[in-house]
Amino acid sequence: MKILYPFVAVIGLMLIAYFGAQAGLESLFGIVIPYLAITIFIVGFIRKVVYWAKSPVPFRIPTTCGQANSLPWIKQNKIECPSTTSGVLKRMFLEVVLFRSLFRNTQADIYDGPKLRYGSSKYLWLFALMFHYSFLVIIMRHMRLFTDPMPFFVPILDFFDGFLQIGTPPLYISDLIILLGLLLLFSRRIFLPKIKYMSLPADYFPLFLIFAIASTGCTMRFWDRVDVVNIKHLAVGLASFHPVIIGKLNPLFYVHIFLVSTLLAYFPFSKLMHMGGIFMSPTRNLANNSRMVRHINPWNDPALKPHSYADYEDEFREVMVEANLPVDKGLPVKEEEAPAEDTAAE
């Protein structure tokens, strides 16, 4: 069920767009919904990040994955346990660009004996790299359709991506890798029992959705080809706020653009927000400097002054002495009385 529902949802979305576009709703699927989706995406994204930024992080809670800054003769691991801003920047860079914490992924399993075994598990890291980078390349390549003249990076990407010159139009390596990456990420969720147990419809839905987007895109390039000129005319029109749909475009194009709109609108409310969240995670973006800098809890009441132990003892000394509690400083010596016992000296 956890797999079936999101699958049916994606198929349903595809059918809606496929038949909707043929029923004369081209401008709904081609213009209105994309605008709506990008607005939801941008506003939702900002709202989510601002919401996160409003939650206080009173303590330093970075995950320490290496030797912390300590005595001068103990070598600090400056990236895995940074104590300075530059260390944090390095750590964040590696995290965002190379998915360092996925690289550290380990897996525990039980094999005959029975014995427990911990091993490194790099699959998630590898599949994630495959998926994210090919997706990035594909999005950047798509800028060819939204801009005229094109930005400089499109021909460069196009050259290297179509380097193999297989077929006409040439096969893009990124298309192949994103589909493969998605298949591997999906099979990870169905073949590893523990991962399967943890997976929710919200995990499968984006996988299916992006797979459907990529495969409709590939279909339009390699099999059921489309009128690229008029699609670009629509896309440039969308980007310059006077969209025009010329002629009958392939309904697959509307399926593609409707799925992308769904992805954009779904993005701010889903786990896909890790795109913004990775920058906001306090376990990564804080320096481990609690021993050097005093961090004050932001919701402390400023009316409450610090109350040291010495003050506390001054306030309650008499009662404490009466109750035979040890005190640092004895009661002041009064005339006509024997000197008070200095309990702290004992």
């Binding site: 941008i42 800028m143 939204f146 801009t147 005229d148 005319h233 896309a235 440039v236 980007a239 310059s240």
Partner: peptide, 15 residues
């Protein structure tokens, strides 16, 4: 995210 919008604003489309 708004790259195509401000990038297009400078040039004109040649259909």
């Amino acid at each position: 995210v708004t790259f195509p919008i401000w990038y297009n604003a400078s040039g004109s489309e040649h259909y």
